[in-house]
Amino acid sequence: MKLLQRPVVTGRALIIGVPWLWLSIFFLLPFLFVLKISISEPILAQPPYMDLLREFSDGLMTIKINLGNYLLLLEDPLYFNALLGSIEVAALSTLFCVLLGYPMAYAIARAPDHMRLPLLMLIILPFWTSFLIRVYAWIGILKNNGLLNQALMWLGIIDSPLEILHTPVAVYIGIVYSYLPFFVLPLYATLVRMDLTLLEAAADLGCRPWKQFVLVTLPLSLPGLMAGAMLVFIPVMGEFVIPDLLGGPNTLMIGKLMWTEFFSNKDWPLASALAAILLIVLIIPFVIMRHYEQRNEEANS
């Protein structure tokens, strides 16, 4: 009798339900649409793919599923190479962000109190200008008659202009520049919360500064480092704008290939299949991170 009197929807369920509803509507549902298009056939019409449901008569439903897109992606090495290309660019960019961003985050976290806010502002300030304009600015800096080459030639360091724009080097410069703040901010948040007395304790026990960093600071900052690295790695995997504007013909990435399939080929099904595969590839590092976090939490408790 008591059970029946319990309200069907509790406050707790409601609160948990809101983010689930949000995720379902804005993540799961669109993904299902993409998945649906990825198993259809392209045709010349509006919209440019066939409906899965072909016929419905006498209670008999005819559905046609086309797995050819996934088979083509597996067969044709072009797509696999593009995926490898994206992974390579994303991994190297993340590495550069770690090497450049860790000292930055560390320096800001250990700076005197009154300096921290201005330093953080310097990291955030570029966001006040549109991302596209900032990438365009790099064209002006890196091109043959650009600022960098003019400066280097004026200084007498080089005789003829360095060809940087439209090469992979320009892509890495653009990506590391654009994504560095996404790495620095979460890492800073972790480093600034660190209990510095732990370092004092280590020092008291005869630990040298370098060893203190390796044995104490680095392990404690790993969650921030991982979060920052994911914030760089995942969006760079699907990056399209920076390689398109700064890169040359040699840069083969999955984002550009998706653009080509969607716009040049009008092959929405294949573009959707590529998107679905990219998502699956991206979920893997995320699962690894979750696993790591859980282990960390267990170790803490």
Binding site: I43, L44, L78, P249, T251, L252, T260, E261, S264, N265
Partner: peptide, 17 residues
Amino acid sequence: DKENRAMTRLWTRVKTG
């Protein structure tokens, strides 16, 4: 459409070497 797709994919190959 079929020829066009073959052409575009060939084009991506040519561009990226």
